[in-house]
Each structure stands twice: as structure tokens, then as C-alpha cells.
């Protein structure tokens, strides 16, 4: 991919998870910024335009889904992907927010890198 794509936001309280997602994203040729909390993430969105966001479901300050709603308010078209070990694929909560259109996709931990690459290919915006 090329520089036409906006950077991707990664939010996870686990620095190692940020490191992993960052590496995967970089390999696809896109830029990436990481945040360890919802507060940090919101601060980043205030000065950056992101083409996509990977959010952990359980963050130390507020839930990933709550953060998704906040981000959605300022950026109606931001594709949001929840990456979590707390929920599972057919989780009623996940099904509801997918239907609602709050999130574009859900990826359970642990994941194959191909899954991440395919959601990037599918949803990343310019």
C-alpha cells in the first residue's frame, strides 16, 4: 500500500500487543500510532486523522466499545475493529455492535496475522 492511506490507530493497554499490531501494520506499508488508554487515544485523534482503528475491548479507563462510540462522534466514517480476548466470535455483545454498525469487524485474541491484514485491506481508508 502507499502513502495515500491515513495512519492506523492501535489502542491496547498491553504494550506488547501494540508492538505486534504495529509490526503487522508496518509490513502492509501503512503508518501506525499506538495508545495505551482511551484517554491517550482520544488525545491522538484530536491532532491526527486516522484511516482505521484497532481497539482492545478492556482498557484501563473506559471500555473499547465506549471508546468506539466516542470516536464515532467525531469521525462518523472511521472503520473500527475490536481486537479482544474477552469476547468471542458469536458473542451477543459483538453481534449487536456489528449489526449496529458501531464496529466494522471483530478479531479474537490470539489471531492469525492474515486476519489483521485482511481487515486492513478491506476497511482501511485514505
Amino acid at each position: 500500500m502507499n502513502e495515500k492511506y491515513a495512519p492506523i490507530l492501535v489502542v491496547d493497554d498491553e504494550p506488547e500487543m501494540c508492538w505486534i499490531l504495529e509490526n503487522i501494520i508496518r509490513k502492509t506499508g501503512l503508518a501506525c500510532m499506538t495508545a495505551l488508554s482511551a484517554r491517550e487515544a482520544i488525545a491522538l485523534t484530536e491532532s491526527n486523522k486516522f484511516g482505521m482503528a484497532f481497539l482492545d475491548a478492556k482498557l484501563p479507563d473506559i471500555d473499547g466499545l465506549e471508546l468506539a462510540r466516542k470516536l464515532r462522534k467525531t469521525n462518523a466514517h472511521l472503520p473500527i475493529v475490536i481486537v479482544s480476548g474477552y469476547f468471542y466470535q458469536d458473542d451477543p455483545t459483538i453481534e449487536r455492535v456489528l449489526q449496529e454498525g458501531l464496529i466494522a469487524a471483530f478479531v479474537g485474541k490470539p489471531f492469525d496475522h492474515d486476519e489483521i491484514v485482511s481487515v486492513i485491506t478491506r476497511y482501511a481508508r485514505r
Binding site: 498491553e14 506488547e16 500487543m17 505486534i20 479482544s84 480476548g85 485474541k109 490470539p110 489471531f111
Partner: peptide, 21 residues
């Protein structure tokens, strides 16, 4: 159970991804 699963899947995800790298 939920908390425990979450707690275990995080390091598992790190292991899995590192192995894939």
C-alpha cells in the same frame, strides 16, 4: 472465567504473533 480467559488470551496472542513473525 471471563476475566481469567481475557488474562490468558493476551499472553497467548503475544506468543502466537511472535511465532508468526
Amino acid at each position: 472465567a471471563g476475566g481469567i480467559a481475557h488474562e490468558i488470551r493476551n499472553p497467548l496472542a503475544i506468543c502466537s504473533s511472535s511465532a508468526q513473525f
